[in-house]
Amino acid sequence: METQYTLIRLRIEDPAIADILMTELFEQGYDSFEEHPSGLDAYVATVLFDRAILEQTLASYTDLCAIAIELVEPLQPQNWNAIWESNFQPVIIQNRIVVKAPFHHITETYPHTIVIEPKMAFGTGHHETTAMMLEAMLDIELSQKAVLDFGCGTGILAIFAAQNHARPIVAIDYDPLSTENTADNCEVNNIEGITILLGDQNQIPEGQLFDVVLANITRNVIFASFDRLYNNTAPDGVMLFSGILTTDVPDLIHLAEQYSLRLQQQLTHNNWAMLAFRKG
């Protein structure tokens, strides 16, 4: 279930007081802020919003400058990325994979076609990290291999694995928008049999070994989950990591060395990196 947010528009005469109020509201659990010349748009999860507490907080600054609540508006969950998603361009990877939306009509043929309707999930191939993961997967034997896609987003990597006859495939994401979107994209691509799980590393089926482990997430999540991912990798299995910056590469290699993993491939593009390690 997506978090519902409330927008509170505050008119604050003095930018220095706006700065203080932002910090104070942040401490109270407000999520984030957009700054305007006339004040702040504050966003808070609707369940945490209490107008009386907000007014009490503002009251302690009204002797310093003029402050007013201009608007309190609950925001309905919606696809905020809809404009971009409605007109994104197809992506061609290594001249072998095309990632396209259902509305794209492509005349050229490619060995692999993945159809993605992103709906606020990550993974359309436009980002360097997704493209590099797919590029690396092109050189991996996937047929009949067990694959884990940890942080699946749109499901793009799991779907590509399924198209290449990998099985079983487990796709995990902590964001319900992503797991729902993975299920939708499986249907669009006529893919069945991917196990889609909502949650973090604890959702990785205990004891199940994967020949290919894919983790295109962030440095912090990769480091926090590394041990679990390693333990779920089959002997001689391969682990692909991306979502990291080139500056993170030495730290990840160092970590992998502690697990006696062998660096097999390294790709970089525009400050982003993809590292592939082999176990055993």
Binding site: E2, T3, Y5, L7, D31, S32, F33, E34, D41, Y43, L75, Q78, W80, N81, A82, I83, W84, N87, F88, M120, H126, L177
Partner: peptide, 15 residues
Amino acid sequence: PSPPIGPALGSKGVN
């Protein structure tokens, strides 16, 4: 992608 990133950037067509 939730607010404010969603409404602030999405409305401008940014991915």
